[in-house]
């Protein structure tokens, strides 16, 4: 009896510790996001108050920052000082997000078209130098992007592709493909090849088999890999900031970093812009949370 009670007391203490630690980590994880979202809805003058308004009151809430980001209309109620803080580069945020989305979607699509069959081939067939090619591909993942950005710049300029979405799409595809193939290879390894063999015996051609049999089976893995490709290309920074110059190809990372560097820029506007920028991948991750988690775990079975 005594033993049992000490055990249950121990369990209780453990539980309290677990919850306390969890809460601390939750605060660490969530508070930056809370703060940036809240800041985007506060009046500029309120953001300069000391201490800041941790929970904003009604009278300091405004949607002016968002209004400005989309329309370029400087809030009419703001003072002269605030007006000078709304730099026109703020209006680039929205088109830049669209650019980023276009680029990321294309990359995701190419990843699907190329990575899906390639992952399948690596998982199912033995062929000349297969392991070497696979390793070489994985090794390219290790390349720090900063080490190839200079040659890339010079090469793209020679090809007249500097400051185009096309160039970024190609580069991001090259960056994400190895990883997509890696994940999908691991995923196919876990699917017994029996289904495919049966389809083959039934007289299915290769492409029909891939579309009708393999694709549905591999869907969760594919989604996981594609989401990763999407996020990587959406959030890439080094290439984006150096290889783009105008809004024709500037992505949201480049615009946001420049905006945050800008002097005396409205802080509320930066916060609103940051919120807008991370919204697409965030929504995606929340919708496909199961796949994201599964995708990370596929890595384990190399």
């Amino acid at each position: 009896m005594l033993l049992l009670s000490t055990i249950s007391r121990r369990k209780k203490i453990k539980r309290v510790i677990v919850i306390c630690l969890s809460v601390i980590f939750l605060i660490y994880i969530l508070s930056p996001i809370y703060w940036v979202i809240i800041s985007g809805f506060q009046k500029e003058a309120a953001l300069e108050d000391r201490p800041p308004h941790f929970i904003p009151k009604k009278e300091i809430v405004t949607s002016n920052h968002y209004h400005f980001l989309f329309t370029g209309d400087i809030p009419p109620d703001s003072t002269l000082m605030l007006q000078s803080m709304y730099t026109m580069s703020g209006t680039l945020v929205y088109p830049a997000i669209i650019n980023s989305l276009i680029i990321a979607l294309f990359v995701t699509f190419i990843n699907f078209m190329l990575g899906f069959p390639a992952g399948h081939v690596f998982a199912r067939y033995r062929f000349w130098a297969d392991k070497k090619i696979f390793l070489l591909m994985l090794a390219t993942r290790l390349l720090p992007s900063i080490s190839i950005v200079i040659p890339m710049y010079i090469l793209l300029n020679k090809a007249g592709l500097l400051d185009t979405k096309f160039a970024l799409i190609c580069i991001y595809t090259a960056i994400t493909l190895p990883f997509t193939i890696w994940i999908l290879k691991a995923y196919f390894k876990n699917i017994p090849p029996a289904f495919e063999e049966a389809a083959r015996i039934d007289g299915c051609g290769y492409f029909k088999m891939m579309a009708k049999v393999v694709l549905p089976l591999a869907m969760p893995g594919i989604i996981a890999a594609l989401i990763f490709a999407f996020m990587t290309s959406y959030g890439e920074f080094v290439f984006a900031t150096i290889l783009t110059q105008t809004i024709a190809s500037k992505t949201q990372t480049a615009v946001l970093a420049a905006l945050a560097q800008g002097m005396s820029t409205s802080r509320g506007m930066i916060a609103a812009a940051a919120t807008l920028s991370f919204l697409p991948p965030l929504v995606l991750a929340v919708i496909f949370r199961k796949h994201v988690l599964a995708g990370v775990c596929i890595n384990l079975k190399i």
Binding site: I29, P32, W35, G235, T253, A257, A260, A271, A274, A285
Partner: peptide, 20 residues
């Protein structure tokens, strides 16, 4: 699930957030 948030936010955007 809250870990999904920092996971999904692009690195530079998180830098902008922390800068603020």
């Amino acid at each position: 699930y809250s870990l999904l948030l920092p996971y999904a936010i692009p690195g530079v955007i998180s830098a902008v957030v922390w800068n603020w």
